[in-house]
């Protein structure tokens, strides 16, 4: 009965609710209200407009591809950081969080300068006929940048806590190295990998600051959905902006739900008898 002893329940919960109400719920309700004012048919019509469709396709498709790349690269980095010892490992470990710490606008202009046709990386790529800046590829590069830490940081602690005896047992029973990796380690890491993927995906879908500089923002080609929302707001098309915003918000809720399910799954996983 700890409820009776500790004070501050009403105060802390009340303050929390008031803050959440005013900062989060009330503004979100305004969005839901504006979007519902258009009606379902109107909403679908707005979303079916070629420009909106292209922007949503690019945001979701690009984010999906970037999250896949980050899953592979992030797992590799987490593996190297946990399993191997080499000079500079701690620095590398700290730098994983760089995309969290570097403001998105800074990342945006830096990536653009780097991949522009006269940039350090853009020049050699351009000579081989590959254009990155001001194309969809550039959008992908920025999305990889912002989503990178998520897979590393979800996989790393689970990998570190993994009992080495499990794979040693597999190997002493005759499994080859790659077999113990594929059949023993990878399945155990699956909830963490999927969680990292979902987080990287959510971040990249909504990303704005780092993408808009490198994207070139050509309508129908390299224009992302958040930018289209901004454009519509600037044209005072509040209904159109709200419709796009509602779609992205529903997606955010869906990701939260998936993450909650993944967490429950990994908890059950942890409770399995060894």
């Amino acid at each position: 009965m700890r409820k009776r002893i500790l004070p501050g329940f009403g105060l802390s919960l009340g303050y929390t609710m008031i803050c959440l109400g005013f900062i989060v719920l009330l503004p979100l309700a305004a969005l839901a209200w504006k979007a519902s004012g258009v009606g379902i048919m109107g909403l679908l019509q707005l979303l079916d407009a070629p420009r909106a469709r292209a922007a949503l396709m690019l945001s979701f498709g690009g984010a999906f591809a970037a999250a896949l790349i980050n899953t592979v690269a992030g797992f590799l980095v987490a593996w190297v950081l946990v399993r191997y010892r080499f000079p500079g490992r701690r620095v590398l470990d700290a730098l994983v969080d760089l995309p969290f710490a570097l403001p998105t606008a800074v990342a945006g202009i830096a990536l653009t300068a780097l991949y522009a046709p006269n940039g350090w990386l853009g020049q050699p790529l351009f000579d081989h006929g590959i254009r990155v800046a001001y194309t969809r590829l550039g959008v992908g590069v920025a999305m990889v940048f912002v989503g990178f830490p998520f897979v590393v940081r979800t996989v790393q602690p689970v990998l570190a806590a993994l009992d080495r005896e499990i794979e040693e047992a597999a190997e002493s029973l005759g499994a080859r190295r790659w077999q113990s990796f594929l059949r023993v380690i990878l399945p155990l890491m699956l909830p963490a990998i999927l969680t990292g993927f979902a987080l990287a995906l959510a971040r990249a879908v909504g990303e704005y600051g780092s993408v808009i500089f490198i994207a070139g923002n050509l309508p129908m080609q390299s224009e992302i959905a958040p930018l289209l929302i901004v454009q519509k707001l600037e044209e005072f098309d509040y209904a159109g902006a709200s419709a796009l915003g509602a779609v992205m918000l529903v997606f955010a809720f869906a990701i939260l739900l998936v993450l909650a399910l993944l967490q429950r799954w990994s908890r059950r996983w942890a409770e399995l008898p060894a």
Partner: peptide, 28 residues
Amino acid sequence: LGALIDLPFSVSPVIAGLIYVLLFGAQG
């Protein structure tokens, strides 16, 4: 409540701006 606290993490920053325009803007 826990999910609500986490919500801003998965919402696009642009949405965070948009909702305040819809609340306090001229047409809000």
